[in-house]
Design a protein around this nucleic acid. Structure first.
Length: 562
RNA sequence: GCGCCUGUAGCUCAAUAGGAUAGAGCAACGGACUUCUAAUCCGUAGGUUGGGGGUUCGAUUCCCUCCAGGCGCGCCA
């Protein structure tokens, strides 16, 4: 079977051959290169391919083709019947062709595993805390936050599929000055509504949602807070606004198909006295010093460009301090790897946070930050502005209303998150071939139609006898292409998990859908020939399962009809 | 000024860990529905991978340099 075992045993065979070669030549190498088996782009290059001979030739200054020749000879001696043939090609690649039977086995595997197909134990249960979105509760989510949400949610699903134990978390920045500003902004709008002539502060939050909140308060509480601006009143407005906004954020995320395992409040770090003990720990380790009345963390010891304040001269802990405590808390809760997803504008913050993590005794690599680049919205070819302060932005909710969840998610996930997303609303809205989401979903819907037709003709997956089915009938080029694509799914999921790149799944989906559409156009699945129909239905049902599983990883629906 | 990211077809993006002839979609042009959904398929055209050097069997990928764009450089969060 062309699965993990095949892969591994082939690698083992190659490794043995390499050692044999070196021994014959009397060459000693401290270690040989890792054997890499890739699926070639070009079908003419076999089912799997390795460049080991080329790598070796560089290390021992030998001829690559000669090395490859020897390895192939050895392999043919030890071949346990899984290989159909082995070829040397190009400058020294070794290309492997498997027995067709092995290829067909993947279909049995898919049909048997169903929604589990594609899962692996790559992560071996490693505990990962994935923190993302974590937007300040001072305003609604906008489109850029949506991208982070889509990436984070999809990544959590991919990591879980690859055998990691993932917990997702939203960090609520509910402590600090910006919350006072929020409270004040709403209070002033409220008082303006009551006819008072007060100027709105320049640094206040200007969005319409602030006015809406003020109106709500006026409806519920009337003129109770007229002409008031004492701390107690501000606090009331602050917590009112915060709760309301946070609730909206949660609702938007649910509409977007994103739910967090945990919501973590920054304020709780203070109420549970977790911030100052961590600073103390840093002090005991000698990583902090006093200067100009403030307490500085020596992040330069760990490669940061300058030291950072943790406690300000006025005695208050800086945002950085609670963030250190927060990350320490994550480790204390038993997570081995922390992944944070941040907007790219926070990149300057990475080094100091990594420094802090190291100072606390954790490894630098166990804390990983994924930077998500900005989103530019286009409408009729023109950029739509997105400034939070000025209140001119398109909210995630607006976007969802306009294009729907599936399209929005796909557009955020279709390209690498570290490149800028250009989100063209006109394309997203068009239900046409320009829109790749529909292309993929259409493939799925077509398969559903086929299955229905099969039912009418009494050819269904349940009726097929898996022992008697003749998969050798699937010998068309298009069919073999599809089978090969299906075989690579697990690897794609793993790669996507290791590299933390959901867009690999999106790309895979597009390729699989494309292969299916081509096949569909060329060949009839359900025909008069029963055995052939059964085999083809078996193939197409496998495609359906993989489409479903891949769409799930992106959080996109699979409609039966379109 | 310093740092991080980006630069690939007219446009939006790919290119599996340095691999084989740099690929898709859109836009352009020409074809295919009496069929399981034409939201599909087939074909044509489109490139000095920002410029220049280097490393090697081989570079879009790694190193140096220059150019262009984005972002960051608070006792804000």
């Amino acid at each position: 079977m062309l699965n993990e075992t095949t892969h591994e045993s082939l690698k083992l065979l190659i490794t043995e051959s390499v050692f044999q070669y070196l021994k014959n030549k009397g060459i000693e190498l401290k270690k040989i290169p890792v054997i890499i088996l890739t699926t070639p782009k070009d079908p003419a290059h076999g089912h799997l391919s390795t460049n080991i001979a080329l790598q070796l030739s560089g290390m021992i200054s030998g001829n690559a083709k000669e090395i490859a020749g020897f390895i192939v000879q050895e392999l043919e001696k030890n071949n346990r019947g899984m290989l159909d043939r082995v070829e040397i090609a190009g400058p020294g690649f070794i290309n492997f062709y498997f027995q067709k039977d092995l290829l067909y086995n993947i279909l049995h595997e898919i049909i048997a595993e169903k929604d589990r197909f594609g899962c692996s134990d790559l992560g071996k249960g490693e505990k990962i805390l994935l923190e993302y979105v974590s937007v300040n509760p001072t305003g609604p989510l906008h489109v850029g936050h949506g991208k982070c949400a889509a990436v984070g949610d999809s990544l959590s699903k991919i990591l879980r599929a690859a055998g990691y134990q993932v917990s997702t978390e939203y960090y609520i920045n509910d402590h600090g000055k910006q919350m006072d500003t929020l409270g004040q902004s709403v209070l002033i709008r409220y008082r303006q509504l009551l006819g008072e002539e007060i100027e709105f502060p320049e640094n206040g939050y200007q969005g319409d949602y602030i006015v809406a909140l003020a109106k709500e308060v006026r409806e519920k509480y009337g003129t109770e807070f007229k002409a008031k601006d004492d701390q107690e009143t501000i606090n009331f407005f602050k917590s009112y606004a915060q709760q309301k906004i946070l609730q909206d954020i949660k609702e938007d995320l649910i509409l977007f198909g994103v739910e967090f395992d945990n919501w973590f409040s920054e304020e709780s770090l203070y109420t549970q006295d977790k911030v100052y003990p961590v600073i103390d720990r840093l002090r005991q380790e000698g990583f902090v010093y006093l200067e100009k009345g403030a307490l500085w963390f020596k992040s330069t010891d760990f490669g940061d460009e300058k030291d950072r304040v943790v406690t300000r001269a006025n005695g208050e802990a800086a945002y950085f301090a609670s963030d250190i405590a927060y990350h320490d808390d994550k480790y204390k809760r038993g997570f081995q790897t922390l992944i944070d997803i941040w907007g790219s504008d926070h990149h300057g913050y990475i080094n100091r946070m990594k420094a802090a993590v190291q100072a606390l005794g954790y490894t630098r690599d166990s804390f990983q930050v994924l930077l998500v680049q900005f989103v530019t919205l286009l409408r009729a070819g023109k950029t739509v502005g997105m400034s939070t302060r000025g209140g001119q932005f398109i909210t995630l909710k607006d976007l969802l209303k306009e294009v729907g969840k599936d399209v929005a998610r796909y557009f955020f996930l279709m390209y690498s998150y570290d490149s800028h997303t250009e989100f063209d609303l006109d394309i997203a809205k068009s239900q046409s071939l320009e829109n790749p989401v529909y292309y993929i979903q259409y493939a799925y819907a077509r398969i559903c139609s086929i299955i229905k037709k099969g039912e009418i003709k009494n050819i269904t997956l349940d009726d097929i006898n898996k022992e008697q089915i003749d998969l050798k009938l699937l010998d068309k080029r298009e069919e073999l292409e599809i089978i090969k694509k299906l075989m690579s799914f697990k690897k794609v999921v793993e790669r996507s998990a290791i590299k933390r790149k959901p867009y690999l799944i999106a790309g895979y989906l597009l390729e699989l859908a494309s292969l299916f559409h081509k096949y569909y156009t060329e060949y009839k699945i359900i025909s008069r020939e029963r055995t052939l129909s059964e085999s083809r239905l078996y193939l197409v049902c496998s495609v359906k399962i993989v489409l479903e599983n891949a769409l799930f990883l992106l959080g996109i629906g699979a409609p039966q009809k379109m």
